[in-house]
Design a protein around this nucleic acid. Structure first.
Lengths: 344, 344
DNA sequence: TAGTCTTAAAAAAACGTTTAACTACCAAAT
DNA sequence: ATTTGGTAGTTAAACGTTTTTTTAAGACTA
């Protein structure tokens, strides 16, 4: 079954009747090789089923043609979309991808990074675990290979990054609700310490302010770190004497908790309550009613990340300065939002 | 930014004042090394930030500690769950995973496999593209590294495999509907040529037969290869004079089409129509009503696949004979199925 | 004709490890 | 006192490539 052993370049050389150097040049189109020999080498390689030994090649040449993809949490559908696109783009560019999932665990993230380092991957795409690398940023800065941060920045680190305008994401959500006539809106979010959540909150508040609405502090559910916390927070919001007419969830996981609470309270969307979320979900479009969301452009993010990384690897980017790409989110209006009910 | 160059074992040796061989032995716990020296070597390695060069190591030792994971279609939530589990288990066992997505394209699958071969991965987990390798099974059989087929078998290939009992999957669905009292049921499926679909159909039919019900040939929508085809096929089924009271979708993608058709025709689940599917979807439990499904035990599949592969890699499996693990699916009853309406 | 240039191919060095073979040393056994 | 044996370490070979250097030979110049 797994007994066969692969031929080496030496055996190809013997069969073709040339030296190993010539085989290498012929197969890699490097250096001068006569057409006749190239042909002989090619067929020799093919008949033996020769597959160059990547380890040997990269040991000598210094490049592995492997990228490391370190994802904070692969169960997050948005990150998953990124993984999908990135694998596809990398593969098209002739690179393989080692996939690492940190499960939002800083320790696992660090172990994985060490492995990627040992593996001498040509470049690393990092969606960092929240609050990881606090105080150990140096380790990242000193990385011998190019690094691109994706979706999440790391303050104190001068590195290339591709993110979205999170203030705008919040703003789009706020503006949409405002235009529909909502004046009594709530938000479910993570930690306000966390820049992404904070920016989304800021943008949301700012949009409401343009309509003269002040976001009620009582209706800001902070520090929801998972679906369960969001679920409970939303239940509390819905059980208030004066129930909000619309709720924004600032990420994927919180949205699930929000939806669960809404169905538990048997509130009809969008008639009794408008629901809007940041991040698309794989089923947002299938749900009835469809979920109105602010979408992050995952394809564009993946594209910017990969092309930025490949530029660095190829030495095509100005050494020294970090390049920060910021992309714009966009609003997808579906059925879960509408004008507020007549009487609150 | 990316200027640093990593230290080699030679520099660690110099700093610790020993030979490179000793460093290697000390760091790998192989051979005899005094406690004092091991300590010296350890600190030397740490202060230099030494990370062993994986290519060099595997060139010499013959093992890469990398597994190849070749997935037919990563957008399939079931396969995705497998990827998730497999990455986690592999990582826990000290292996890295190169993720390759074939997008149900045989050509891409073959290119990826060639790359994994060059990469000399220690083992390969393969969820093959449908109908790929037809007539070229030999290439797979001659692979120098262990291979485990996951979820889909490849006929003509004597290889380890981990699958589920697809007949049973169909049977469970049929039995459930039968018990609820349905007599007029439909099924949406892919090609009957394809063993998985065929077995699910067989099991379904068999279950119905135990209740004396013959599956109406008119109500078998064959050759639905994607969501769109399923959507149209279901619309046709629903528009029949005598509408079925329950429908089974035999996989993930078809389920989406089925659900779309049902909402388009504004049929209430489960009152007007019972819906059941093979394969869980990430939102089946969140949907209202929740979707009744036959679930494949993804964690168990991943576990069997990885441990089988590692056994082969470690030479702990009897050479020669292929081991076929078959796991049992299970039924998760949620809100989308109920007794049929009084009058058809 | 002798010398120089060009070119295709071969030879050899190098990449960073692991490991087999070897050495030096000391303790125990004869 | 000599052997035997084991232990802790070193030396050197090997893994399969790529790349630099060297060789050989033919074509051109003086």
């Amino acid at each position: 079954m797994s007994g066969a052993v692969l031929p080496t370049i030496r055996e190809v050389a013997r069969l073709a009747g040339v030296s190993v150097a010539t085989v290498s040049k012929a197969l890699n189109d490097s250096g001068k090789v006569s057409e006749a020999l190239r042909e002989r080498v090619d067929t020799a390689a093919r008949t033996l089923g020769y597959a160059p030994h990547a380890s040997a090649r990269s040991l000598r040449s210094g490049a592995t043609r492997i990228l490391g993809l370190l994802v904070a949490d692969i169960t997050n559908p948005f990150f998953l979309k990124l993984v999908e696109h990135i694998e596809q783009l990398a593969s098209a560019a002739g690179y393989s991808v080692i996939l690492c999932n940190s499960s939002e665990d800083a320790e696992r993230e660090e172990r994985h990074l060490g492995m990627l380092l040992s593996q001498r991957v040509d470049g690393i795409l990092l969606i960092p675990v929240r609050d990881s690398w606090r105080g150990r940023i140096g380790a990242l800065a000193r990385l011998p290979q190019p690094l691109v941060l994706v979706d999440r920045m790391l303050d104190g680190l001068e590195a290339d990054s591709v993110t979205i305008d999170n203030r705008m994401a919040g703003y789009l959500a706020g503006e949409h609700l405002l235009r529909l006539g909502h004046r009594h809106v709530a938000i479910v979010m993570g930690s306000p310490e966390h820049p992404i959540a904070r920016h989304r909150l800021d943008g949301f508040r700012e949009a409401l302010a343009t309509g003269g609405i002040a976001l009620d502090e009582q209706l800001i559910a902070r520090n929801c770190f998972n679906e369960e916390a969001a679920y409970r927070a939303v239940l509390a919001l819905l059980d208030r004497a004066e129930r909000p007419t619309a709720i924004l969830a600032t990420n994927n996981h919180l949205t699930l908790g929000l939806l669960r609470a809404v169905t538990d309270r048997a509130l009809a969307m969008p008639d009794a309550l408008s629901v809007i979320a940041v991040d698309d979900l794989p089923f947002s479009a299938i749900m009835r009613p469809g979920l109105t969301v602010v979408m992050q452009p995952s394809a564009a993010i993946a594209e910017a990340a990969i092309s930025g990384l490949l530029d660095r690897i190829g030495g095509r980017a100005p050494e020294g300065s970090a390049r920060a790409v910021v992309l714009e989110p966009r609003l997808a209006v579906r059925g879960s939002t509408a004008a507020p009910p007549r009487r609150a």
